[in-house]
Design a protein around this nucleic acid. Structure first.
Lengths: 235, 235
DNA sequence: CGTAATTTGTTCGTATGTATC
DNA sequence: TGATACATACGAACAAATTAC
């Protein structure tokens, strides 16, 4: 919290605005205070207020119109349907099995992906994703501590953590996925009930919140025909 | 020209910057003049210059780094209509080698994908995609006869057939891609110089023209780390 | 309907901080 | 280490669009 002192003023303001929206102080479609009011309220210059607002306009959180009050966007990009990208696991009865869930001190790459400091800890959650009693994927999730605490209680119950995070007012603004492939190691092959060396499809994902803070970095190894990754460009 | 009088100064500057990039005055990766130089050159305030630059950074045309000169982004927004899907082969010297190019009478699935009649023929084009003298992918392209005729002459020269089709006024309106994975067969392993059984990333693609007629159905098997499939949702 | 007040947009100037070269 | 370049932050004035009376 006190770490925020280091953050630029406009970022601090931005966070305060986002919080007000998250907490429902300003509802979607509603007007937020005018620039002059915010200047008084936070005792900063107009430049600073404007930069904070512009950043949020850019992210589709706010909406400005010359002469008219600035408003919170309707349907602020929360779970805005991915237009044309389908990433679907094939099956009817989906379960998950938690293999591991603990705090980690050492994991340079995950910390790098999550934009954390050297001395910060991360939660690591390893799960087996199961469709119709057959394992289809091995998943490693790395979560910042506060996010991990939210996920903690439900890790073995929910197949998808995002709705749960949404209930706690943690919304994502950006997801980046990278697709690759690998051969199953002995360890993973055993877990998935396949032969070591069989092809897996790897998906590496980084999710960022509307406050620009990372929510999750994950790596998932799928049995290729147990899921579908389809996307549509254009039209 | 005189029409620009009405546009805000920063938009005019922005247009000038974009023109310089388009005309190749500043190449991708190259530094553009510093803010102070631009201030002198265009005789405007720093605010104005910065707003123009910030807008272009936002659009991924420029790249700024505190302390370092502002640069033109490598690969600036190549496909405008492409909202965050990057499908890129990694390498500098790209070649292709044609393994097979002929008309086929029998190929039910390809004809189905291309929406052709039973008695129609298809062209099949099999190629090895090579980056820096190393094979990175095995590709099978199925083309309707008229499209195939266009591709015929250039199959061994062009890495990407779409620009060629564009020159013949064949434009696509829609691309659908499906990602999967498989293990290399003996045949493909030999072609790619890998060991049979190694993991490959498969991409199945269907392209539809602006006249709604199918242009191409293809299957490509990539060596996973020789290419990159990244997508971004939201923002 | 028109006018005044309000609100955001544009543009200038200046000063200081901080990362890069 | 010093010079350079971008980032942050303050203040001020006018323009343009909207809103309220």
């Amino acid at each position: 919290m006190s770490k925020q002192r280091k953050l630029p003023l406009y970022v601090q303001i931005k966070n305060k605005l986002v919080n007000n929206i998250k907490e429902g102080v300003w509802q979607p479609g509603e007007a937020i205070p005018s620039e002059s009011q915010l200047i008084e309220q936070y005792n900063v210059s107009r430049t600073t207020i404007r930069q904070a607002i512009q950043d949020l306009v850019q992210k589709d959180v706010l909406e400005t119109r010359r002469g008219a009050p600035t408003r919170v966007k309707e349907e602020p990009q929360v779970d805005k349907g991915n237009p044309g990208i389908i990433h679907k696991e094939i099956g009817t009865n989906m379960e998950v099995k938690v293999l591991r869930f603990e705090k980690l001190k050492e994991h340079y790459y995950a910390k790098y992906q999550l934009d954390l400091e050297e001395d910060e800890e991360v939660y690591v959650l390893e799960r087996l994703r199961i469709a119709d009693s057959k394992p289809i994927a091995y998943q490693q999730l790395y979560l910042p501590i506060p996010i991990g605490e939210v996920v903690k209680g439900v890790a073995s119950d929910v197949f998808d953590i995002f709705p749960v995070l949404g209930q706690h007012n943690i919304h994502h603004s950006n997801i980046q996925e990278m697709v690759s492939g690998s051969n199953a190691t002995q360890y993973v092959a055993d877990l998935l009930g396949i032969i070591p060396g069989e092809a897996l499809t790897d998906i590496e994902r980084t999710t960022v919140g509307i406050d620009d803070k990372p929510i999750e970095y994950s790596r998932t190894k799928y049995i290729p025909n147990a899921f579908m990754y389809r996307m549509e460009i254009g039209k």
